[in-house]
Design a protein around this nucleic acid. Structure first.
Lengths: 213, 213
DNA sequence: TGCAACTGACTGACTGGTCAGTTATTAATA
DNA sequence: TATTAATAACTGACCAGTCAGTCAGTTGCA
């Protein structure tokens, strides 16, 4: 029954609240232009209190990226495990649908977008994301491809190109629906989009000699 | 024989020199953290001189984006015109090869990367890029698709999904080779990569019932 | 041709404001 | 009462933008 008065103590919850606020401010203004005081205000604290939990502004950025990378890596690993081998085609559709649906939520896409924006300026951060997220994604896709080829449902295609063909459309969709989205253009259903993209990636755009599958 | 002494006057060349320097500094450090003094130093000028050519730091960013968007839009329009109708498949391969080859040059990819990083903070800039670059790209691809379908070489696919499938892999490649590139992983030939990606997008990953084309 | 008067590109010191991080102090809890 | 969470005022560094002054190069006059 801790009615949250202004000064209720709950230091356990603070770091996460601060990180939530930091993510919001960082994605809105970018890291360099973000003011610690704004992060504090959004977390319902004073600026000084922030420094009880994080030694610096940059430490918040690091914590944020580690958190996001950890979550994404875990989600990726889970997807590899869950029956990719039994039906690779369905697995690809499922992965794509999950990614597009998740990215349709700005709160979920915020951290990856932040990394995208700040990677140039913080190479350590880019490297961290690379080893923990991108390489995991690469392994996931390679596993998916090899399972499909082993079952004889996938053609033998070049792995690096396949990776770009798999992940690229999802990135393009994310960019189009978040940072380059015009207020008046229609919001597309992520599941529909995922299926339409999967149709193209799996079946190609050219008319096949054998006719429609 | 104008040996460029320190004070040789050539005000016509200045704005472009300043923009070159600004692009370099902006992409290295991001707009907010970029120091006008650093831009000036790189352009071989003092800080004050910058303000003879641009009213503010932000004006340099705007000029830079307009320049880049103009160049990309022009390149896009040219590609639409040049025989996409006669052989849509070859046209797609050519466009993809051109984009990947161009983006392999960090000087060319710098401006788009800058826009990607700063779009959130400067919505006006994002909107400008959208109407001038993205919408041009969208038209190009739609023309390509329709030409292919009219000739009976392309299947009727959903246009928005096709756009993401066309452009996405190129974006993914750009991100992987520039901001997420590890120093020790191999540099791939952009033309090879473009062909491998085009193979997947055009023919798909699934084994087709009719056998190999 | 020589030189004085002039121009305007350029400099660098300065100002005003912002903001990351610190610290002295206060409020709440055990 | 002791301890700890939190505040708010403060400090020092940093930097965008300004401006009075400098000087390379040009023009016009003798």
């Amino acid at each position: 029954m801790t009615k949250p008065t202004k000064r209720t103590r709950r230091p356990e919850a603070r770091p996460d609240e601060i990180l939530d606020a930091a993510l919001a401010v960082f994605t809105e203004t970018g890291f360099a232009a973000a003011r610690v005081e704004d992060i504090a205000a959004r977390a319902g604290l004073s600026k000084g209190a922030i420094y009880l939990y994080f030694p610096s502004k940059e430490a918040m950025l690091n914590a944020l990226v580690e958190q996001s990378a950890g979550a994404l890596a875990k989600a990726g690993e889970k997807l590899v495990a869950s029956g990719a081998a039994s039906d690779p085609e369905a697995a690809y559709r499922a992965v794509l649908t999950m990614i597009l649906t998740a990215m349709a939520n700005p709160d979920v896409s915020a951290a990856p977008r932040l990394v995208l924006a700040e990677a140039q300026r913080f190479p350590v951060l880019a490297a961290y994301y690379r080893t923990n997220v991108i390489d995991t994604g690469r392994r996931t896709m390679r596993a998916l491809l090899e399972a499909g080829m082993a079952k004889g449902v996938f053609r033998p295609v070049e792995a690096e190109a396949a990776m770009r063909a798999f992940a690229g459309p999802a990135i393009a969709h994310m960019l189009l629906t978040t940072i380059f989205h015009a207020p008046d253009d229609p919001v597309l259903d992520p599941a529909d989009m995922a299926n339409a993209i999967a149709d193209i990636i799996l079946n190609g755009i050219k008319v096949q000699p054998g006719g429609a599958p």
